[in-house]
Design a protein around this nucleic acid. Structure first.
Length: 515
RNA sequence: GGUGAGGUAGCCAAGCGGUUAGGCAAUGGUUUGCAAAACCAUCAUACGCGGGUUCGAAUCCCGUCCUCACCUCCA
């Protein structure tokens, strides 16, 4: 069995352990995707991001990854929401699925290789339920009128509770025992939920119905990844009961075939005022809400500043003028601005390089930083996907890159040094670019990013670019006439609007700061 | 009650037995007509509290306080 340098914190064993592959060079990853009845919030973004970083790292290391992230488009919540809006459940879930894909795609998460939908895998689900019934792990309950439910018998699976470290007795205490309970044991959960002929459902050996909540992931992961795949990801709230039940279903269906999954990774929550962001608490901020105010790249950077297993605080602040500020994301966007600026600066310096092999001893320190970055980045990510440490590597590269540019500028009359700096800038840019790629950051063209972010910020401020241009021109004229009092007054005026003006030998430029 | 996560300098956040990651803010510099950006320096002998183990602990052990989460739908 091939062992990787990458170590992940596995929920089942509770340990940090090296990633073990069944087949050399191949990694299978499954991530529990959304139930598509509403727009995704920042918590969903985080849950999609953790496996994305994993997949990017693995591919960077040359491994072949099969990444599956499902869409649960059949669910009672979808049905309930559709009834409210008068929409067909399938139409609603399809629409929400598209919005999810757009939101997560904009976050810079690469699309999964397979994105299976429950509605397209009913046959797989039915077959799995049949198998469980045949194994004695599932049982059918006749509700009369041709309606039947199928339940999983928790007692039939001895390992039940091993993932969430729960004992059956402990669970029993909190279990809600309904009157008229159809289940043999209160802890048993539905594999198939029968429904009336007129309701939303699919035909099955037990009559019309819909799959239970957990069975879809068991069926679809088995379909695309088989039994015993490498990594299964999801939010910490899925540990129990969702993933516990997935294990029960898959291992009961494949007795003697070993563990369903080799490594379980679970991401921590996004908190608002120290509480978990959740639909039920009503304290959620949708990804779209964030994108309205900030660049998707900023949200990604923000989420990467904290290790995926820990909690991350999402602070919302409403300003006097009514603008909503997400401070952490705003700070992240300033970093994204900075990183794009460094990439551009290095690019400009590299473009002056006429001698690709030029070297200067006084630049050795910079060269060393660039050369070692990739190794440091790998070490950070190999330590249970330590993205904050990875971002420190990015920061080091960016700072060094800027320093190199500063040196080249200060000593621009030294042709030998400038030639060497130009050549080294190419290396530096490649190193930074490479690190950013692994983290999925700054994937836009720098000028495209600038255009879109400036436009969004201007819109947020309610200021027209033409008005700014006019004032900047006016100020330039004042400066030309050495009327600095007037020029400074204009700068202050622009500053009050949130516009930063920068003077250079070739004229004046302006930008809108992150607000 | 059971189970799990966490409490690190003004703020955010790595580190998890042995030369104080990184970022933000602030202050002082280099630069600038003045600024901005960029870079440098300071802030930083910080690790909830009390014991213990060790040559050495933020890191290990015991106790204790606080926060959050899961046990019901939840990323």
């Amino acid at each position: 069995m091939a062992e990787q340098k990458l170590r992940l914190h596995d929920t089942l064993s509770g340990d940090l352990r090296p990633l073990a592959l069944e087949r050399p060079g191949e990694v299978r990853v499954y991530c529990c995707g959304p139930t598509t009845y509403d727009d995704a919030h920042v918590g969903h973004a985080r849950a999609a991001l953790a496996p994305d970083v994993l997949v990017r790292y693995l591919r960077w290391r040359g491994l072949h990854v099969t990444y599956v992230r499902n869409i649960t488009d059949v669910d009672d919540k979808i049905l309930a929401r559709a009834k409210q809006s008068g929409e067909e459940p399938t139409t609603l879930s399809a629409r929400m699925a598209e919005r999810y894909q757009a939101d997560i795609g904009a976050l810079g998460c690469s699309a999964p290789d397979v994105e299976p939908k429950v509605s397209e895998h009913i046959a797989d689900i039915v077959a799995l339920v049949e198998r469980l019934v045949a194994n004695g792990a599932g049982y059918v309950v006749d509700l009369g009128g041709g309606v039947r439910d199928v339940y999983f018998a928790v007692r039939a699976f001895p390992g039940y509770g091993k993932l969430s470290k729960r004992k059956l007795e402990d669970l029993r205490v909190g279990a809600r025992i309904e009157a008229n309970d159809k289940k043999r044991d209160p802890l048993d959960f539905a594999l198939w939920k029968g429904c009336a002929e007129t309701e939303w459902g699919w035909p099955s050996p037990w009559g019309k119905g819909r799959p239970g909540w957990h069975i879809e992931c068991s069926a679809m992961s088995a379909r695309y990844l088989g039994h015993g795949f490498e990594v299964h990801a999801g939010g910490m709230d899925l540990v129990f009961p969702h993933h516990e039940n997935e294990i029960a279903q898959c291992e009961a269906a494949h007795p003697g075939e070993g563990d369903f999954v080799r490594t379980w990774i679970h991401n921590g929550f996004v908190n608002v005022d120290k509480e978990k962001m959740a639909k039920s608490l009503g304290n959620f901020v949708t990804i779209r809400d964030v994108y309205q105010r900030y660049d998707p790249e900023a949200l990604r950077y923000f989420l990467l500043t904290v290790h995926y297993r820990g909690p991350i605080a999402f602070e919302t602040d409403k300003r006097e003028d009514g603008r909503v500020v997400f401070e952490g994301v705003a700070e992240a966007e300033r970093r994204i601005d900075y990183l794009y600026a460094v990439l551009e600066r290095l690019g400009e310096l590299a473009a002056t390089a006429s001698e690709p092999g030029a070297k200067a001893k006084e630049l050795d320190a910079y060269a060393k930083v660039f050369a070692g970055a990739s190794e440091r980045l790998a070490a950070a990510l190999e330590d249970d996907l330590n993205t904050p440490a990875a971002l420190a590597v990015v920061a080091e590269l960016a700072k060094t890159g800027n320093e190199l540019c500063d040196v080249a500028q200060k000593r621009k009359k030294d042709a030998r040094l400038v030639a060497a700096a130009g050549a080294l800038a190419r290396t530096g840019k490649a190193a930074l670019r490479g690190a950013l790629d692994v983290l999925g950051l700054c994937h836009s063209d720098a000028s495209a990013y600038t255009v879109r972010s400036q436009a969004r910020r201007l819109a947020a401020l309610g200021v027209a670019a033409a008005d700014i241009d006019r004032k900047v021109d006016e100020r330039l004229a004042a400066r030309g006439a050495k009327d600095f009092t007037r020029a400074d007054a204009l700068r202050a005026e622009l500053g009050a609007l949130g516009i930063e003006v920068a003077d250079s030998p070739t004229g004046s430029t302006w930008r809108v700061g992150v607000v």
